[in-house]
Structures are given as structure tokens and as C-alpha cells.
Design a binder for these strands. Structure first.
Length: 372
DNA sequence: TCGTATT
């Protein structure tokens, strides 16, 4: 059935009340996976609030470093909102990630430590092959075969089923229950898959919470931005952005983590945009850059703006301006992005973009009430 | 040849 990690998990027993208690499967609590590293809890809340009223929202962070672990939970008040969130937000591309939205299983000790690392796989083994190999031992939550160019794959195919990248011969299988994983190790470790000559190794995967390999060099926090190559959070003394013009040589690399998110740089492409945005009292309101989007269709909803701007970087909030009577979009909206450079790229990319049969106008928000 | 999936 499912051939990639983007799909909502299929309940192999149809979700009916079989052996294991189908008791308190929450219909409102969602787990969100593959979140962009920079996405904050409030940005997640904002995104999911575009569907319906959120009861609670939690981004899971590393207890030591505070870094996002790339997943979180969103609990709605209403089950129908949770279902709608899955239908509309699962598979949404944000920055270089494709998020996954699915129902959270009830938390328990039995589901922890159920992730397996598999190596020695034949290079031609597909994700589906891998699932077929492991599925006799339990319900598979996720599976993945590592490829050399996963980034390219996600951008080109949107995380599709085929894997143009070359398999590295290693992968992961996450089972629903730890006992299922244990049994898979016993039965499959050291065995030779059909059509292969090499035995596979099956073992428990490293636990990402207690590894020490992800700590960036201390120097990354101490040296000037020129030497920064790591995406970790910079704790600016002011706790907020400071305007630091750099040379106009900066280039933006959307696919790497090399965008310095805590300094504003002049971009040779963006001089006039910057000039506009720096008008008094406008785009930068102290927490992000407000972008004006014009010529939206009457039926536009918030998720459209998320879809449009999300791929360009951190989006804090979106707003569709509606007529109070008809509840239809009045033709414009606003998007607030955290980082100046990402906002510039979004504007340059989306201004003039044809959405439906409408040509969008996208710019930094200006203080047009004064009609200066 | 180790990804960011259980509060």
C-alpha cells in the first residue's frame, strides 16, 4: 500500500477493534513529522489554526540543546478539524521538507524504541521491498531507504514514490511496537534477502536524543557570520534582530543551511524592495516582515498562502482579508515571514506569479494608509 | 554507509 513515508499510516487491521485495544485512539490529536528545523511552535500553531481551533500545540525539542527534533503534536478541539488538517496539510512542502500529518498514537512505553536500522541492503531494493520484508513482524509506521540525493528527490518529485537517488544500502524501519521490532531483529538479522548475496544487519537504531554528534562547533557561535556554516540558533544579545548590512555579494542558497538567518544583508537584487520595506512603521514590525499579496480569488483560504510562501522559508503567520458579510476574500492578504532574505526571495518569486487565472502582486507591505 | 516518530 503505502510506498513512502509521506502517506498517512495505514492501519493494517482497518482500525477496528481487534486484539489490541482500540480504546482511546484520539480523533483530535495529531503528530506532525518532518518539520523544518527552523519552524517554531508558534509557527506550527499558526499553520494548524488555519484549519480550526487548536486546543494545544507542542514542538518537541532536544532537552539539552533546545533544538527542534523535527516533530510535534497538535491537538484540536474538534475531530473534524483534525481530519481536515490531515487532508489538507499532510504532504505540505515547507522549505526543504515535506511535512507529514497523521493521528498520534496513544503514548506508551510499548511504542518507544521500535525503530530499526538496517544495513547491507541490496542496492536495488525498494522501499516497498523493504516493507514487504519486515511487514510479517508487525505494523510498520515508517520505512526509509537512504539515498545519495534525498534533497533533490524531495524537490523534484515532492517526495514521490520512485527513488531516483542511488540507494546507500541502508534504511530504517519503525514498528508500532517494540516487541515487533525485537522479533524482526531475531528473525531477519544476518539473513540474506531473496536475490541478494549479502546478509543484512538489523539492529535498533540510534536514539537521536542521546547522541552527541549533532552539536555544532562552539566556534560557530563565536565567530563572525562569515565563517558560519551551521544552522544552529544564534542567541543574539538583544534577543532580536539587528540590522547588519553586509557586502552586496551575498547569495541565497535555498537548499543548504548556509543562509544566515540572523543578519540582514543587502541583496543586489533587492535594493528597491529594501527601500520600500524600510519606510517608517511598516514591514518589519518587530517580529517578522509583513508581505502584501494582492489579486487573490474570493474563495482563497489561508492554506493557499501557506502553500505559496512556505517553500521560501519561515512563515510566521498568514491572513486572508475577508468581507465581513460574505466571508469571501476581498482580493488581498498578508504573510509575515521571519527572515528578510527569505521574504525577498518569496516576493521576487511570487510577484507576477499566475495563480488560477490571476496574476499576483506581491510586495513588502507599505504604510499605504497615508498614501505617501 | 544512522532519519529527525510519542508530549
Amino acid at each position: 500500500m503505502m510506498a513512502n513515508g509521506m502517506d498517512t499510516v495505514v492501519q493494517q487491521n482497518g482500525g477496528s477493534n481487534l486484539g489490541q485495544s482500540s480504546q482511546e485512539e484520539s480523533k483530535t490529536n495529531l503528530i506532525v513529522n518532518y518539520l523544518p528545523q527552523t519552524m517554531t511552535q508558534e509557527e506550527i500553531r499558526s499553520l494548524f489554526s488555519s484549519i480550526g481551533e487548536v486546543e494545544s500545540c507542542k514542538l518537541i525539542r532536544d532537552k539539552l540543546t533546545g533544538q527542534s527534533l523535527g516533530y510535534g503534536f497538535v491537538n484540536y478541539h474538534r475531530p473534524e478539524d483534525a481530519e481536515k488538517a490531515i487532508n489538507t496539510l499532510n504532504g505540505l512542502r515547507l522549505q526543504n521538507k515535506t511535512i507529514k500529518v497523521s493521528y498520534a498514537r496513544p503514548s506508551s512505553e510499548a511504542i518507544k524504541g521500535a525503530n530499526l536500522y538496517v544495513s547491507g541492503l541490496p542496492k536495488n531494493m525498494t522501499q516497498q521491498d523493504l516493507e514487504n520484508l519486515f511487514s510479517p513482524f508487525g505494523r510498520i509506521i515508517t520505512s526509509r531507504i537512504l539515498c545519495d540525493n534525498i534533497t533533490v528527490r524531495q524537490f523534484v518529485t515532492g517526495g514521490g514514490d520512485n527513488l531516483p537517488g542511488l540507494s546507500k544500502g541502508v534504511g530504517f524501519i519503525r514498528f508500532d511496537q517494540r516487541v515487533e521490532a525485537e522479533r524482526a531483529i531475531q528473525e531477519l538479522n544476518g539473513t540474506i534477502p531473496k536475490g541478494s548475496t549479502e546478509p543484512i544487519t538489523v539492529k535498533f537504531a540510534n536514539n537521536p536524543s542521546n547522541n552527541n554528534k549533532a552539536i555544532p562547533p562552539l566556534a560557530a557561535y563565536l565567530t563572525p557570520q562569515a565563517t558560519r556554516r551551521f544552522g544552529g540558533p544564534i542567541h543574539h544579545p538583544t534577543g532580536r534582530f539587528r540590522y547588519i548590512p553586509l557586502s552586496p555579494l551575498s547569495r541565497i542558497n535555498l537548499t543548504s543551511g548556509e543562509l544566515n538567518k540572523n543578519c540582514f544583508r543587502y541583496s543586489p537584487l533587492a535594493g528597491d524592495l529594501l527601500a520600500n520595506s524600510m519606510l517608517p512603521g511598516n514591514a518589519m514590525n518587530g517580529s517578522g516582515w509583513c508581505i502584501f499579496v494582492y489579486n487573490l480569488a474570493p474563495e482563497t483560504e489561508e492554506n493557499v498562502l501557506w502553500q505559496l510562501f512556505g517553500p521560501f522559508g519561515a512563515v510566521q503567520s498568514v491572513k486572508v482579508i475577508r468581507d465581513l458579510q460574505t466571508n469571501k476574500c476581498k482580493g488581498f492578504g498578508f504573510v509575515t515571514m521571519t527572515n528578510y532574505e527569505e521574504a525577498v526571495v518569496a516576493i521576487q518569486s511570487l510577484n507576477g506569479y499566475t495563480l488560477g487565472n490571476r496574476v499576483l502582486q506581491v510586495s513588502f507591505k507599505t504604510n499605504k494608509s497615508k498614501a505617501a
